[in-house]
Design a protein around this nucleic acid. Structure first.
Length: 269
DNA sequence: CGAGGGACCTGGTTGC
DNA sequence: TGCAACCAGGTCCCTC
């Protein structure tokens, strides 16, 4: 599920409820996630959450000692509800807070993660090699065009590579390429600088618009208050089994890197 | 080094 | 109606 807009939505949603709170109790119902939940998590009662931030699709929770690195995987979501409210199915982790609220992590497919980190989480081996944030100044035409030089990989899988740029998942990769008029199968190294410039802007615009709508809900994703994200109605090509919204030609589907791609054969070249 | 595929999971939908 | 096959927001890691 969660691509950058969904993680950003989650981050903004939980921050006011968890920042500054003490962790009163930790409930671990299932620790077999993508990686086993770090053993230190079980002993976090008494710690304070000093802040919440996002890097790529990781949600970072600073504690008075160390920090937590969360990942929502494919099906993860977080909610804040009064402590004592019944646990939903697949609600694997719960942090009871000093304000009487609980942070609840639900993840049916268990591709998510919760890791404890002693030092700067940005230096963690999972975060250290990541490319720039797509909404930051470092992600610009010169950067992306430079990275594309000599690369034969399809542009769609290329922009989904977190070492190139973070946060662009399967939905928004298709959407951004549609907006930029670039076919997802085109080799990254064979796209002109002018078109790369369009792509950079398209990625920015797509992600920004999705954040404004609280992300995209296909199935599992919910905002912290339990509502879905509302960007689904704004999707142009992803999961569009009908006509291109621009030219009316049938949207085409193909599989790249075991993931579904959608594009318009007329508008995208 | 880069490209491509398997692996990790559960659950909803599709098709016979 | 029942059941198997397939598909779904991610991404690390291994092989070629």
């Amino acid at each position: 599920m969660p691509e950058l807009p969904e993680v950003e939505t989650t981050c903004r949603g939980i921050a006011p409820h968890v920042s500054g709170q003490r962790i009163e109790r930790v409930l671990l119902r299932e620790t077999r996630l993508r990686w086993p939940v770090s053993p230190q998590v079980a002993g976090l009662a008494g710690s304070h959450i000093t802040g919440v931030s996002r890097r790529a699709k990781y949600l970072l929770m600073a504690l008075d000692h160390g920090s937590l690195i969360w990942h929502l995987g494919m099906s993860g979501s977080m909610r804040v509800l009064p402590t004592g409210s019944p646990a939903a199915n697949h609600e694997h982790i719960e942090l009871e807070l000093s304000n009487g609220q609980s942070l609840k992590f639900r993840d049916p497919r268990r591709f998510g993660a919760l890791l404890y980190c002693d030092e700067d989480p940005l230096q963690h081996r999972l975060l250290q090699p990541l490319g720039p944030e797509p909404l930051a100044d470092e992600f610009n035409t010169d950067y992306l065009y430079g990275r594309c030089r000599g690369r034969s990989a399809a542009i769609k899988t290329f922009i989904m590579n977190s070492h190139i740029v973070v946060g662009v998942g399967n939905i928004y990769a298709s959407e951004a390429l549609y907006l930029a008029g670039i076919r997802p199968t085109r080799a990254a190294g064979k796209i002109s600088k002018a078109r790369i410039a369009r792509l950079v802007e398209a990625i920015r615009a797509t992600l920004t618009a999705a954040i404004a709508k609280g992300g995209t809900t296909l199935q599992d994703f919910t905002q912290v208050d339990g509502k879905p994200g509302y960007f689904r109605q704004a999707l142009q090509v992803y999961a569009n089994k009908g006509a291109c919204h621009t030219c009316g030609k049938p949207v085409r589907h193909l599989v790249q890197g075991q993931r579904s791609s959608y594009f318009c054969p007329l508008c995208q070249t």
